[in-house]
């Protein structure tokens, strides 16, 4: 019962508008006045796209960790946190691409170094590994719905945890490679580290204390789990009965 794309009114003008904007950018960049603007953009990207990749990654990780919280957040906040997590990942991937492209253009890195973690400086190699891990993690995120029908749901989480490794490598890469950082950049690194640390702590609390959030005695938590199980069974059987009722028997 898919709505054909042509039926949705919003989509129809989107494609021509997108083409027009892209053409405009391509033409504008060829003019000399455009060249001045583009040089500024290039300067900005050269300096900041790497930083923003890391910041985006950090925001994404913090949002993702926050979204698992059940104690403080209401459900709608969790959904918004997940939406933020996805948007931040998308943005940081875009910055990652632009960072890599700019570094290749300025000959600070070879094209080969994008694919393989080789090179004179280990700093760039670290960046390559971090980027690859980021891509894998992002792909698992995109394909999350597939895991819903698979037989190994734990696999998704295991793969997604590679993001921590990617993040750590990205931090080290940022500190080692490239220019000497001005003070505020170093401070922002510290803030990123602190943010993820706090979020991890919150996540740890969730696993240790399941929903409810109060300290429980072992018997209490066991009986609570039993009650939960019973409630779940009740819901399931009610659901099944409802389904049976309107199921057409032949």
């Amino acid at each position: 019962m898919d709505t054909p794309q042509s039926e949705k009114p919003g989509v129809r003008w989107l494609v021509p508008a997108g083409i027009a904007v892209t053409a405009g950018v391509l033409i504008g960049a060829a003019t000399p006045a455009g060249a001045v603007v583009v040089t500024e953009i290039q300067h900005f990207m050269d300096f900041y796209s790497g930083v923003f990749t890391l910041v985006g990654l950090t925001v994404s990780m913090v949002a993702g960790l926050v979204a698992t919280d059940r104690m403080i957040l209401k459900i709608q906040h969790r959904i918004l946190a997940q939406a933020l997590h996805r948007a931040a990942t998308l943005i940081s991937m875009a910055f990652l691409v632009s960072h890599v492209v700019i570094e290749i253009l300025t000959r600070n890195a070879d094209v080969v170094q994008v694919l393989l973690p080789i090179g004179r400086t280990s700093a760039i190699a670290l960046g390559t590994v971090a980027a690859h891990l980021m891509i894998i993690v992002a792909l698992t995120g995109v394909a999350r719905a597939r895991f819903a029908t698979g037989r190994r749901p734990w696999l998704w989480r295991a793969l997604h945890w590679l993001s921590y490794a990617a993040w750590i490598l990205a931090i080290i890469h940022g500190l080692l490679a490239g220019r000497q950082a001005p003070v505020w950049v170093t401070w922002s690194y510290l803030v990123c580290v602190a943010g993820v640390g706090v979020a991890l702590l919150a996540r740890g609390l969730v696993t240790v204390r399941p929903r409810g959030g109060e300290e429980e005695l072992p018997e209490e938590s066991r009986s609570k789990a039993a009650k939960r199980k019973a409630a779940r069974e009740a819901s399931r059987s009610a659901q099944q009965a409802a389904n049976e009722r309107i199921k057409v028997s032949r």
Partner: peptide, 8 residues
């Protein structure tokens, strides 16, 4: 932006 830079 990246497209513009590369084009340049």
């Amino acid at each position: 932006s990246l497209v513009a830079v590369v084009e340049r």
